[in-house]
Design a protein around this nucleic acid. Structure first.
Length: 464
RNA sequence: GGCCCGUUCGUCUAUCGGUUAGGACACCAGGUUUUCAACCUGGGAAGAGGGGUUCGACUCCCCUACGGGCUGCCA
């Protein structure tokens, strides 16, 4: 049996980090098994669903590199099919027409709660004769078993059992003829051939009722896998006050998608002691059995560490491409061809020193800036009289040097020795002149990347 | 309130009855160093509590505590 998974967000806002991880798990599971990963937009709540939200979700998935098979399916578009199934349940006797009004039900609930009881509404129409109300509006309720128990075999949580008596007969079709989410999910999952339902823990309780719909229709129940939710650093449910909860926020802050994927994959899932891995490894290793049972907290420090590792592992050209996208996404000017060229040559010296793109860009300043190089506040003090004099005596020696690290190194170390100072003292003004920054790659690497002419020109700019 | 789920270092986790309870991030100390990043060495740091079962429990069972989820003609 070929694996089919899906991600089914409701388009009521941005792509939440928790949703992103759910999508990632589904994607990983399907992609690692040559299966399909489908996308369904649960837009049946017409009040809250917006096309902007749908676009934001697709954009977030795309940025994360989670590609889906086929077009995104609109749940709302399937409403007729859902209604047909509800009526079929009626025909099969696994559902019935309920003429109780919402007011009656609300009143019942209020009374039960006031009496300190748990309000399970038992419709009086379950076994009544519907022909007594030929023209009255009705909702269709599923006829759920009243006794016994229902068990869910969950790939993460194990066997979960519930007493059927605690469940009421859920509505599957509203009195206005529209289907309810609980029915729509089951019908859609069945129609789309979904074999594995991997979703948040918050749906675990829903699975019981959904499983009853599968049973009523004689459909094959998918493999359930309810994964624990993500919590904020304080252990509470992740919310806006914890800072970034939208994947778009992370993109804008310059975290690499590969790092996000790696971190999110490892959050709540493990493969022995492996912490940093490639996408191929993630796909090959990912399995439902490695998913933990308790909620995990977001740890930004570890996220950054993993991102740093992923930047270091990335191909130079791919990194440059991502930086271009980052610049565009944050509304900044794209790199010129000349800047891209220098950036590419500088990349080997940059990618091991940065955890995020802004950090990498900052360290790439020497390659991106053009003369005259204006030192920032931290670098400027190095270009005092002493510093400038050092540069003045150094410049002529570079004029005819062979432009390779092996020959530049003795020149600089000898120069420092001649001045009776440590190399660090010489490197500071050099760094300030070449980059205008204090955090940069090695001075040798910078000189080699920008070349002799540019190096000497910058030194002369700083110490005329 | 009821039902369901969970609980190993600060955090993410390994362990699937027998380990000095391992790794990673973070932290502390030392080293290296050309800034940043990195790197090397060392260190502190955990089985929520209580009962069982067992020769032996982090591991299996029960209770309590705490945390979370659900409890709609929302999704």
């Amino acid at each position: 049996m070929s694996v089919v998974t899906r991600f089914a967000p409701s388009p009521t806002g941005y792509l939440h980090i928790g949703g992103a991880r759910t999508a990632l798990f589904n994607w990983l599971y399907a992609r690692g098994r040559g299966g399909k990963f489908l996308l369904r937009i649960e837009d049946t709540d017409r009040e809250r669903s917006t096309p902007e939200a749908t676009a934001a979700i697709l954009q977030g998935l795309t940025w994360l590199g989670l590609d889906w098979d086929g077009d995104a399916v609109s749940q709302f578009a399937q409403r007729d099919r859902h209604a047909t199934v509800a009526h079929e349940m009626l025909t099969r006797g696994s559902a019935y027409k309920c003429f109780s009004t919402q007011e009656e039900i609300a009143a019942f609930r209020a009374a039960e709660e006031a009496a300190g009881r748990y309000p399970v509404f038992l419709s009086p129409w379950r076994d009544a004769d519907p022909s007594t109300h030929p023209d009255a509006p009705f909702a269709i309720r599923m006829k759920a078993p009243r006794d016994g128990e229902t068990t869910i075999e969950d790939a993460v949580q194990g066997s979960v059992r519930i007493q059927n008596a605690t469940l009421d007969d859920m509505i599957v079709l509203r009195s206005d003829g529209t289907p309810v989410y609980m029915l729509a999910v089951v019908v859609d999952d069945h129609d789309m051939g979904v074999t594995h339902v991997i979703r948040g823990d918050d749906h675990l309780n829903n699975a019981f009722r959904q499983q009853m719909v599968y049973a009523a229709m004689g459909w094959t129940v998918p493999v359930w896998a309810h994964i624990p939710l993500i919590h904020g650093p304080d252990g509470k449910k992740l919310s806006k006050r914890h800072g970034a909860t939208a994947v778009g926020d992370y993109q804008l802050q310059g975290y690499p998608a590969a790092g996000m994927r790696n971190y999110l994959t490892r959050l709540g899932w493990s493969h022995g002691d492996d912490e940093v891995f490639t996408s191929d490894q993630a796909r090959n290793w990912f399995d439902l059995s490695g998913i933990g049972r308790s909620p995990a907290r977001l740890d930004f420090k570890k996220l950054e560490h993993v991102c740093g590792q992923q930047i270091g592992m990335a191909e130079n050209a791919a990194l440059l491409h991502e930086i271009d996208n980052f610049l565009t996404a944050t509304g900044r000017r794209a790199l010129t061809p000349a800047q891209s060229d220098l950036m590419l040559r500088a990349m080997p010296h940059l990618k091991d020193r940065a955890k995020t793109f802004p950090e990498l860009l900052e360290k790439a300043h020497f390659a991106l800036a053009s003369r005259p190089i204006v030192p920032d506040a931290a670098a400027a003090p190095s270009l005092d009289d002493t510093g400038r004099n050092m540069l003045k005596s150094l410049t002529p020696q570079l004029q005819n040097a062979e432009w390779a690290r092996a020959s530049l190194e003795p020149i600089l170390t000898d120069a420092a020795a001649a001045l009776g100072i440590g190399f660090g003292k010489l490197a500071a003004p050099l760094r300030a002149a070449l980059a205008g920054r204090t955090a940069t790659p090695s001075v040798y690497d910078m000189m080699l990347v920008i070349g002799r002419e540019e190096t000497i020109a910058r030194l002369k700019d700083a110490a005329p």
